[in-house]
Design a binder for these strands. Structure first.
Length: 435
RNA sequence: AGAGAGGUGUCCGAGUGGUUGAAGGAGCACGCCUGGAAAGCGUGUAUACCCGCAAGGGUAUCGAGGGUUCGAAUCCCUUCCUCUCUGCCA
């Protein structure tokens, strides 16, 4: 794919940070098992140095040229044509020099940006080192795992028995991973969405309904591009992408925005379908609702003052847990290790529910602090107390993703005759049992 | 989708080749004035990068990209967006 360079990114701040905190950045990248970290960082610093010296040359020549142009203007005004023509002749040399330096400058700048695009966020100091999900740190486990009857079934059998979700129909219409929710299955979806949105509103989040097709700039802003374009569906005729998460449109609402300190904290919640190509990730454990190309999710997004973002991360963590508690689902919270964390995140908590018939933990939420990584790409800043521009922090979390919640509800609440619905959902559902 | 109009600083709005980072107004901030407020007066009020310990200075930016020119907000090309009319449509 053609990689478009976005203009005017404040990436230079990132370079300064690398320069001033070289060891810390290096250690962070190593925690992520980022290959060739040291040499890449040196490349960054080297390119930046070249960029600066080239800019200096260019600017000086340009300044000279500007002076001459002004003089020509004055001469012409005074009717001194001859002298003006005289000076004009001398500018051609300067002009070609400027052009050379300019071309060189653009080259360095683009190379630099390309390299910077490949650098993931530096993990928070508390993030454990590790290579895979096995190295994630267990923070807590909560709730009791239900003891199910002998004939317990995984959700993909339950949904067939009760005809509430139809995968074959989805295959006919779209393809694998696009289920059709029917009857009580559809109503369960709607009930969960409404429940999640109502809860978020009570917690102070402002509901938004963003577009679910986004442009390229938005993809770069939150970090899906240029790294993960293969994971998104593309509407190529219009250069738009189907969102993999509401994080993309909601966070991008704040692209190119300058906030006041008094605007913090900004709390938004949005319900959207999410689309993921999941290229290469099909294998074991993806039956039923465990992994889909299209699914529904309610997402919470906060824009925070840097001093408060970790406090807010904990608040969001607790908020997501409160939802799981209210749904009476057993869950655990993990702090992701460097190797398992997303590209843009500095610290991520994963919430997993226990799906009692599959006898597996299923990830249903991921709550992350991106610190200023996304803000840097978004140019999302605020004027601090000293009146200086500073990058804000962005955070988000699923609250919650539906399919695996549905899977766990179905499996965990089944008995010989059917499935009872969590009490808290019953007012939303209008029924208390399936089957 | 076709025809036309337009995109200028926080906002409104001037500006069709030469000290224009950009008139004027509003807003905002500070100061003066006031018993307090309003009005009035004065001053200030963009962002990025670069040089500099700093004070300060340089370069760029008038939707975006490119071109013409010694010099462009102003001319040309491309593109995006908005508005009006026509067409189509949930």
């Amino acid at each position: 794919m053609h990689i478009q360079i976005l203009r005017d990114f404040t990436f230079m701040l990132q370079v300064n940070f690398i320069e001033e905190n070289f060891e810390q950045v290096l250690e962070g990248l190593r925690k992520r098992n980022f290959a060739h970290a040291e040499s890449i960082l040196h490349t960054v610093l080297d390119l930046d140095k070249k960029r600066k010296s080239t800019q200096l040359e260019r600017d000086q020549l340009q300044a000279e040229s500007n002076v001459i142009s002004k003089r020509i203007g004055l001469l012409l005004r005074d009717g001194n044509k001859e002298e003006a023509e005289n000076i004009k002749a001398r500018t051609s040399e300067i002009k070609s020099s400027i052009k050379q330096f300019e071309e060189q400058y653009v080259t360095y700048e683009e190379e630099l940006k390309q390299v910077l695009y490949t650098l993931p966020n530096v993990p928070h100091s508390s993030v454990p080192a590790g290579k895979s999900a096995d190295d994630n740190e267990l923070i807590l486990e909560s709730g009791t795992i239900p003891a199910l009857h002998q004939g317990k079934k995984p959700h993909w059998e339950l949904i067939k028995d009760f005809d509430i979700i139809d995968f074959d129909l989805g295959v006919k219409i779209s393809g694998a991973g696009f289920p059709v929710y029917k009857g009580k299955g559809a109503r369960l979806q709607r009930a969960l969405v409404n429940f999640f949105l109502d809860e978020a509103q009570k917690a102070g989040y402002t509901e938004v309904q963003p577009p679910i097709l986004v442009n390229e700039d938005s993809g770069y802003g939150t970090g899906q591009l240029p790294d993960k374009e293969g994971q998104m569906y593309e509407a190529t005729a219009d250069k738009l992408y189907l969102i993999p998460t509401a994080e993309v449109p909601i966070t991008n609402m704040y692209r190119d925005v300058i906030l006041q300190e008094s605007d913090f904290p900004i709390k938004n919640v949005g319900f959207t379908p999410c689309f993921r190509r999941e290229a290469g990730s099909w294998g074991a454990h993806v039956r039923g609702l465990n992994r889909l190309h299209q699914f529904d999710k309610v997402e919470i997004v906060q824009i925070a003052h840097p001093d408060q973002s970790y406090e807010i991360l904990e608040e969001m963590n607790l908020y997501v847990q409160s939802l799981l508690n209210k749904l009476n689902l057993p869950y655990r919270v993990l702090k992701l290790c460097g190797g398992d964390m997303g590209f843009t995140s500095a610290l991520t908590y994963d919430m997993e529910v226990y799906s009692a018939a599959q006898e597996r933990w299923l990830e249903v939420s991921s709550v992350s602090n991106f610190e200023n990584f996304q803000a840097n790409r978004l140019k999302l800043r605020f004027k601090n107390e000293e009146g200086k521009m500073q990058l804000a922090h962005t955070l988000n979390g699923s609250a919650l993703a539906l399919p695996r919640i549905v899977a766990a509800i179905l499996e965990n609440n089944q008995d010989e005759n059917g499935i009872s619905m969590p009490e808290i959902l019953q007012p939303y559902l209008g029924f208390d049992r399936i089957g």
